[in-house]
């Protein structure tokens, strides 16, 4: 498929987009916490991936390469966002503890948005993208030991946040 993409075959490029767009969008959504921003960045990521596909090292896995672009673009989008107001979806503080199961995802996302950017990326790549520690390290360009450290810090901070928000074994009893 990559070879056909490089030859400019449109159907192969559509196939490429179909193969990765859900994963990239899910990562961007969890990283950015804003659907419209995630759509924009996803498009940007896929466009860049197609454009620079020839620079992909075929001896490596394709998915981490694409996700690496996504992580970098999310980082760029977040740094640009720091110069303008937060999107509404992230700036709204919940008034009351949530009790419904549907609200858990939203609450976890809020907790994630409060994490340090690299901790959040590490957490999302590991749990949501189901990458191994080695793959996360490759995507984030850091040693595997750093990934483990960031992952456990992210888990700890998120658990503390969720507990504060009324979620947890002692609150469910």
């Amino acid at each position: 498929m990559v070879q056909r993409c490089l030859e400019g075959e449109e159907s192969a490029q559509v196939e490429f987009v179909n193969l990765f767009q859900q994963r990239v969008f899910a990562l961007c959504l969890r990283m950015l916490g804003h659907r419209q921003d995630a759509e924009d960045v996803t498009q940007d990521v896929l466009v860049r991936a197609l454009r620079y596909l020839k620079s992909w090292d075929s001896s490596r896995e394709l998915a981490p390469w694409v996700l690496k672009i996504a992580a970098n673009r999310c980082r760029t989008a977040l740094s640009q966002r720091s110069t303008r107001p937060l999107p509404v979806e992230l700036s709204v503080e919940p008034e009351t503890p949530i009790s419904e199961v549907e609200g858990v995802a939203e609450e976890v996302n809020r907790g994630l948005s409060g994490l340090r950017e690299d901790h959040r990326a590490c957490f999302v790549l590991f749990y949501q993208q189901e990458l191994s520690v080695a793959e996360v390290a490759e995507v984030m360009d850091v040693p595997a030991g750093t990934v483990k450290t960031w992952l456990f810090r992210a888990r700890k901070e998120l658990a503390d946040y969720l507990r504060k928000r009324g979620l947890g074994p002692e609150n469910e009893q």
Binding site: Q21, F25, L29, R30, A105, E106, V108, Y127, Q128
Partner: peptide
């Protein structure tokens, strides 16, 4: 706590790309 909440997090939000 996390093992109980994270599966809900992964299922809870639709992440279908509209592109």
């Amino acid at each position: 706590l996390l093992e109980g909440q994270l599966p809900l997090w992964l299922e809870g939000e639709s992440a279908d790309s509209p592109l």
